[in-house]
């Protein structure tokens, strides 16, 4: 690995115990250990987190914008998947 080949890492930060890790940003580093150390300095300078994940960007696979219609649109006509689709009389109380 040459200096210019330092991989790009995506940084995920857990803001407090009990919450999931959330994407914060990215950075370059030669290895995971240094990526974590740099992520700490860059993304958690003000108590933003209690735990950090780093993942090499090349390992992230994603949907394509051109696929988004076939991927996500079928959900739109399935309103019976939502609680408000069902009629429950008020007398029953909160459900």
């Amino acid at each position: 690995m040459e200096r210019k080949d330092w991989p790009l890492w995506e940084v995920f930060v857990r803001s407090k115990a009990g919450l999931s890790h959330k994407h914060s940003g990215s950075l370059h580093a030669p290895d995971a250990e240094m990526a974590i150390s740099n992520a700490r300095d860059v993304y958690t300078r003000r108590n933003e987190g209690v735990s950090i994940w780093v993942v090499e960007s090349k390992h992230i696979h994603s949907t394509l914008e051109t696929d988004s219609e076939s991927m996500f649109d079928p959900n739109e006509d399935k309103i019976y998947r939502h609680p408000t689709f069902y009629d429950i009389p008020d007398e029953v109380g909160h459900m």
Partner: peptide
């Protein structure tokens, strides 16, 4: 350079 060499060695 040192950081790169260290990462290479560990790999």
């Amino acid at each position: 350079e040192a950081a790169t060499a260290y990462a290479n060695k560990r790999a």
